[in-house]
Structures are given as structure tokens and as C-alpha cells.
Design a protein around this nucleic acid. Structure first.
Length: 500
RNA sequence: CGGGGCGUAGCGCAGCCCGGUAGCGCGCCACGUUCGGGACGUGGAAGUCGUAGGUUCGAAUCCUGCCGCCCCGACCA
């Protein structure tokens, strides 16, 4: 309470060290990314936040297309009987489904101006609001697939889904969220497995190169895998508070959905076989990860490749005359920078002072700020400030168009390097359960430890420490050891962490 | 669903215990001075006190019902 008041007075937000969760919420709100709506658990994504999502969409969509996928759109509603066809999938999501039971309202005869659900308009069959689209998509694929010639089907959809979570947090877990879900169908298991891993690589590539966030690729344990999948692969990223965030998943579905929806094809020998499937998705949760991984106590820091605005230009003037002169000088610069493919904002509002604008764009995480005042006009210079390090330096106007793109690249690289260094420092290898607990309670982060591979041990560790097996890393070397909990033999270390 | 808390101006809150007809900060509007790191002064607008009922001469304040939200837990791949 006291902290809150102080923060408002000082126009500052709680620091990460003070209260990480509150810091996160304040960044989201003050950077104008999103806010809680009047609908329980659902957020309004504001223009600036949505612009980041659009950047993510553009980056991912191109990568999907480059790997042969096309976009399509399937219905929001799934008839209950269809939803329950794949048993494990249905069970896994049953507890968090919103269901449509009626199709009409009517005026309340006992309460003027109010509406009630019309009891006569009960649906013959309830409609589930999709928490994920495997069911509706596989029931459609059934109609599309007869022969091996119809395969593979490589489809992605950009959509919203609803999962009625008990507790929600802006971007990280909301009742409705935006995502993309890829759903592919293949003739062979090998091809489907290859697709699963290919998309995992696409996600890792995107998160590392666009979001500047290193990830660990791995496989989920039996207990953590997607309901209805044979194998779930994931990428795990580390946030600044030492907790892990699952940034994307790619599932090898085997023939589970093909069998549930009876999707068969004739192979070259004329024999009927069940189709092999995959699904994979990332969501607006990535925005939450972006914030938690990179931002600082002064606000958001957006990696240039996802920044809606690359460069903001703040003119410094006292009189209208000065303002006019600066605008004239800035004009060609803006044109040149835009020609270089950059998104440039010239903030010449005279309703706010420069200091206010500096703080505002720092809060919004704009990678590069350029200030131009009377002094610069005389010297033919501008002041350049980079958001990631807060460093400022004076630059000749003639160098701007060449130097800014280089600077943006440097910021992108620096952000990745910083996040990688953090993750490296926050990854600990332990041999004993005591060590394991100590690390979790002192510094947190990723912990590499031996595990016997059983669900019982996983559950016990989770109950006792709140840490879970994030994944069984794909690229780690086999190493004989003993499970930290049970002492049973283990062939390799797995990645543990407390997670979002 | 269990435990706790809160609904008062756009936002954040005080007032409630001890009933007398609503206040503070930020924001907003106007004017002036400011403008190279979140400016200041003066004036101003803005609230059926969540909702329905009860007690009372009188209710933001006391009582009861209802609604909504938040936090902790359970839940959440």
C-alpha cells in the first residue's frame, strides 16, 4: 500500500527487486500494452500491445509459409459430441471449457429493460467454445483425405481460444487469448515427427532471433504433455525472476486424432491407413515473456525486430520558430530512415515537455531515441540514446541513416547476449536433493538434475518444491547418474524450474 | 468451491468504528509563465457513495439480502 502510493507520487513503478509481479502488471499498463476488461479474466489488448502482436504474427507467418504451410480458418464452436471424440484431449480440457447452451435471449416479463435466456431456445446439442481446435479440424480433415495424394495437409490458423482459467494474468494467462495453431496431417509417422521437430525449430528460431530470448528445446514428461499427444516438444525460456516460461509447444499426435475421427487414406498399395498428425502453437503469452525477460525498472525494452516504433524523434524547442526550424531539418531524416525500412515516429507535440517524452518512450521500450534541439541545428548533430543500455551520444546528422540501422542490429544482438548471459548464470547443475532445494530457494532459475523418469517422483518434487520438469532437453549428452529424489539410476539430466 | 478483502469523481484512495448530506492526490479543462530528463501558478468542471430493502427526523456511515471485483488456496501442459 505504502509502496503503491509512493510509486504514484514519484510516477515510478515498483522495481523488479521490490515486487516482480506488481512490476510486471505496471509495465503492461503503463506501456499501454493492455488492460483488464470488464469481462472477467479477459483483457483488452491496446493498440501498442497489438502492434507488437502484429509484428510477431508477421515474423511467424512468413516462417510458416516458408516451410510450406498455408492459413485457413475453422469455427469457434465445437459440438460437444465432436469435442469428446478424442478422449484424452476432451478430458484434459473439460474443466476449462465455456459452453454455449442457448441461442436466444428475450425480454424479461418481470423486469423491464432486462433480458433473460429464452428457455425455449435451448440447443439440441451444446457447443463448446474451442480451447484448441484439434477436434473440429480433424473432423474436417476426414472429409478432405482419401488418398496418399491428399497428403500432407499443412495448415495454420490465427485464432482466439477460450480456456476458463481460475486465475488470470495479463498476457500470461487469460480466459480468452490469441494464438496460432498449426494442424498437419501426414502419411507416415516419420514425416509427422519430422514436422513436429521442424516447427519446434521454427519457434526456437523466432524466439531467439526476433524476441532476442534464448530457449531450451526439449520434450515434455508424460505428466506434462498435451492431452491427446504421443509426444509434446517445447521451448522453455527463463524470466528475470528466475522462473521458467513455456514459450511454445509442438505436438506429435501419432494417429490418435485420426483414429478418434476416423481419418484414413489409401496408400500406394491401396490399403487403408490412419493418418499421422501434428499440432503446434504459440500465443499472446509470448508478449508476457518478452516483457519479463527484457524490461527494466524504467519500463519496457522491445527488441528492434519486434518494435512497432524503431526510432522516436523528440524535438527540443522553446518557440514556434524553433519548432518550425527543427521540423524542417528533421523532415529529410525521417524520409531517409523510412526508406531504410525503419518505423519512425516524430513526436512534435507541444503539449508535453521533452523530459516527459523521454520517460514515456522509455516506458514504451522504443529502441532508439533521437533528440534534436537548437544546439544540434547549429552543430549539424543529433543526440542518440539507446534504450537497452540507456547510453547517449552525439552523432553527425550525415551519419544517421547509416548508423541507426547498425545500432538497431547491435541492440538486437546485445539484448540476446544479455539474456543468454543471465540464463547461463541462472542455470545450475546439482547432484543432491538438498542442493536442488537450496538453489530453488536462493537463486531460482533452471536446475539440471538427474531424474528417474517416473511420474511419482515428478509429482513428489512438485509438491515439495513447486518445481516441475520443464523438459527433457534435446541436445544434452547422455550421462549416468542417480535420481536426486529416489536415488534410482538415470541416464541424463533434465531441466527443472519453477514456472509460470 | 474453501479462506480473506474491497466496491466513494476517469484512475488511486480517505471518510464509516462514534449517522448531520462528500474530501485528497493524480488526471482533465482554461489562462499565464515554462520547455536539452517526468514543470509551476491561478482558476474551473466532474461523484444516483455497487445494488435492493430496513432502522432513523436524517444513512457513504448502522442492519439484511443480492451483484461484482481482487488476493491466497484448490485449478491451470
Amino acid at each position: 500500500m505504502r509502496l503503491k502510493i509512493d510509486c504514484i507520487m514519484a510516477k515510478q513503478i515498483p522495481t523488479r527487486a521490490d515486487d516482480y509481479a506488481q512490476w510486471y502488471v505496471e509495465i503492461v499498463k503503463r506501456a499501454d500494452l493492455a488492460e483488464n476488461s470488464d469481462v472477467r479474466g479477459c483483457m483488452v489488448i491496446k493498440p501498442y500491445g497489438y502492434a507488437i502482436w502484429e509484428k510477431m504474427q508477421q515474423g511467424l507467418d512468413k516462417m510458416f509459409k516458408d516451410t510450406g504451410h498455408v492459413n485457413a480458418y475453422f469455427p469457434l464452436f465445437v459440438p460437444k459430441s465432436m469435442f469428446e471424440a478424442e478422449e484424452k484431449n476432451a478430458e484434459g480440457f473439460a474443466k476449462e471449457c465455456a459452453i454455449v447452451t442457448h441461442y436466444r435471449l428475450k425480454t424479461d416479463p418481470n423486469n423491464k429493460g432486462k433480458l433473460i435466456v429464452d428457455p425455449d431456445a435451448k440447443l439440441e446439442e451444446e457447443l463448446v467454445v474451442r480451447p484448441t481446435s484439434e477436434a473440429i479440424i480433424w473432423s474436417t480433415y476426414r472429409k478432405w483425405i482419401q488418398s496418399y495424394r491428399d497428403l500432407p495437409i499443412l495448415i495454420n490458423q490465427w485464432a482466439n481460444v477460450v480456456r476458463w482459467e481460475m486465475r488470470t494474468r495479463l498476457f500470461l494467462r487469460t480466459a480468452e487469448f490469441l494464438w496460432q495453431e498449426g494442424h498437419t496431417a501426414h502419411a507416415t509417422a516419420m514425416e509427422a515427427e519430422k514436422e513436429t521437430l521442424q516447427m519446434l525449430d521454427v519457434y526456437a528460431d523466432f524466439v531467439e532471433n526476433f524476441m532476442a530470448l534464448p530457449v531450451i528445446k526439449g520434450k515434455k514428461s508424460e505428466g506434462e504433455k498435451f492431452p491427446g499427444a504421443i509426444d509434446t516438444y517445447c521451448i522453455e525460456a527463463l524470466m528475470q525472476d528466475g522462473k521458467a516460461l513455456q514459450a511454445g509447444t509442438s505436438h506429435f499426435l501419432g494417429q490418435n486424432f485420426a483414429k478418434a475421427f476416423n481419418v484414413q487414406y489409401s496408400n500406394k498399395e491401396g490399403k487403408l491407413e490412419y493418418v499421422w498428425g501434428t499440432s503446434w502453437g504459440v500465443s499472446t503469452r509470448l508478449i508476457g515473456g518478452l516483457i519479463m525477460a527484457h524490461s527494466d525498472d524504467d519500463g519496457l525494452i522491445i527488441p528492434p525486430r519486434l518494435a512497432p516504433i524503431h526510432v522516436v524523434i523528440v524535438p527540443i524547442f522553446r518557440s514556434e520558430e524553433e519548432q518550425t526550424k527543427i521540423s524542417a531539418a528533421v523532415g529529410p531524416l525521417i524520409t531517409a530512415l523510412r526508406h531504410a525500412g525503419l518505423s519512425v515516429k516524430f513526436d512534435d507535440r507541444d503539449t508535453h515537455k521533452p523530459g516527459f517524452k523521454f520517460a514515456e518512450y522509455e516506458m514504451k521500450g522504443v529502441p532508439v531515441r533521437m533528440a534534436i534541439g537548437p544546439r544540434d541545428l547549429e552543430n549539424g548533430t543529433v543526440e542518440i540514446a539507446r534504450r537497452d543500455t540507456k547510453e547517449k551520444h552525439v552523432m553527425n546528422v550525415k551519419d544517421v541513416v547509416v548508423e541507426i540501422p547498425k545500432l538497431l542490429e547491435d541492440i538486437q544482438k546485445n539484448m540476446y547476449a544479455r539474456a543468454l548471459k543471465f540464463r547461463t548464470e541462472m542455470t545450475t547443475t546439482v547432484e543432491t536433493y538438498d542442493e536442488f532445494k537450496n538453489i530453488l530457494n536462493s537463486k531460482g532459475g533452471f536446475v539440471l538434475a538427474h531424474w528417474d523418469g517416473t511420474a511419482e517422483t515428478e509429482t513428489k518434487i512438485k509438491e515439495e518444491t513447486k518445481a516441475t520438469v520443464r523438459c527433457i532437453p534435446l541436445h544434452s549428452t547422455a550421462e549416468d547418474g542417480k535420481c536426486i529424489y529416489s536415488g534410482k539410476p538415470s541416464k541424463m539430466r533434465v531441466l527443472f524450474a519453477r514456472a509460470y
